[in-house]
């Protein structure tokens, strides 16, 4: 973990309310486990708390980290309006990401994502591809016009889409897509990030899978495991886990979603 002023070198609007920013700095040379996040200070004195974003991709050769985020409140709206060249006080990489070291070339992984849970799965898919793992993606959006990173994911493996309104791919949510198309398929690893309903569906479905992981979201303050704002309850024992430092990635069956 380091704290660094990263330079915003590019910002692109991907959909109606989803943006991609490219940040340049030495942080790109920190070892990044896919699923780890950075905590960004919005340059506005009235906004005290940093905003956590999963790392969408990292390119050490170009000193670049990419973040993809949806504008939901004042902080993310301000970020989306920042001009190229501005410096952003950034803390990271933070948290524990998706375990991948157990996978061997030729083995199969399933990546399940929904909405703004999708960005960190892109870096995961990239790293799995580099390891020679065969990756299948099941990706859900509300509507066709909300889809982003379509070409990026297609370049990394098979992609099955679900949309809530049926405007693209399977008509229904991700849990229904998995039931309809993935019941007879076996994977050596399963990874998921997305809204609560998606995580519950994945957690249920792959509860006993030896290598199934979900990435959680929570309101954070310190971002590094000291303030206990972002806790989730462990399922089997009386214990609270911190999403920021024990997670955000947990094995299925481990936490109350």
């Amino acid at each position: 973990m380091i704290q660094e002023k990263l330079t915003l070198v590019a910002q692109e609007q991907l959909t109606d309310n989803v943006f991609e920013m490219v940040l340049k700095g030495q942080m790109a040379h920190e070892p990044v486990t896919p699923g780890q996040f950075v905590d960004v200070k919005v340059p506005d004195e009235s906004l005290l708390l940093r905003r956590p974003f999963g790392i969408a991709s990292v390119d050490p050769n170009r000193d670049e980290i990419r973040l993809v985020y949806r504008t939901v409140g004042k902080g993310t709206h301000l970020l989306s309006e920042l001009p190229v060249g501005i410096q952003l006080d950034t803390l990271g990489p933070l948290g524990h990401g998706f375990p991948t070291a157990f996978l061997k070339p030729g083995q199969h992984a399933l990546i399940i994502g929904g909405g703004t849970g999708i960005p960190p799965l892109y870096e995961l898919s990239r790293q799995l591809n580099q390891m020679g793992v065969v990756v299948t993606h099941a990706i859900g959006f509300g509507r066709r016009d909300q889809i982003f990173y379509a070409d990026e994911f297609r370049a990394l493996g098979e992609v099955a889409y679900a949309t809530d309104d049926g405007s693209y791919g399977f008509h229904g949510h991700i849990g229904m897509l998995l039931d309809a198309q993935f019941n007879d398929r076996q994977f050596d690893a399963v990874y998921a990030c997305g809204p609560r309903g998606l995580l519950m569906a994945v957690d249920n479905r792959y509860r006993d899978h030896p290598h199934a992981y979900i990435s959680m979201e929570s309101r954070m303050a310190c971002g590094m495991g000291e303030c206990a704002a972002c806790v989730v309850a462990a399922k089997r024992k009386e214990q609270l886990l911190k999403v920021c430092s024990d997670g955000p990635v947990f094995a299925t069956g481990k936490v109350e979603i």
């Binding site: 005290l48 206990a228 704002a229 972002c230 806790v231």
Partner: peptide
Amino acid sequence: KGNPTPRVAE
């Protein structure tokens, strides 16, 4: 164990 979440609001 502390309080239920969310525990922080800006």
